[in-house]
Amino acid sequence: MSDAEMERIFLENAATAAAGTHSVSDTGDLLAALGRVVAIDSPVFCPGMTELEKAAAALFPVRAADYAAAAVTVEEVFGAVAETGTIVCSSEGGRAVQAGLLPAHHVAIVRRERIFGTLDDLFAAIAFAPPTNVTLVTGPSRTADIELTLAIGVHGPEKLDIILV
């Protein structure tokens, strides 16, 4: 699978799973995309741990100190899986995986080179020494517990946006 092919499949599968998908080429485009995706005056949690997160964090006037109090979490995630349209959140490097769980809106920034083709590729990379928590996230939180009717946003985010950089 070529990189372009992998990217196309990832975006297609993520969209099928009801994630919002955005593809940008550089940091300037990323900030523009964030401006469109995030309600700018809502309390945003952004860990500011990576270069992209540092750039993103400067964009938001209202910063939530804690993800539990945030309306939106904007973060760069560990990677993605093309096969399933999944983003991969990892606790590696002291990251709070639950930061993308509590707020109603999760915005995940993924670097293109961090897309794995298949689930096998991902697990081959992490299976030797997995960190405390690795969570595969595919679309928003959902349930079909009432009459098998799909309802979005049960305990996790009702909205997931993925920005590929």
Partner: peptide, 12 residues
């Protein structure tokens, strides 16, 4: 195709 979440928890 896959559930919304798959958590892999390794220790506390």
């Amino acid at each position: 195709t896959i559930t919304s979440y798959v958590s892999v928890i390794t220790g506390p």
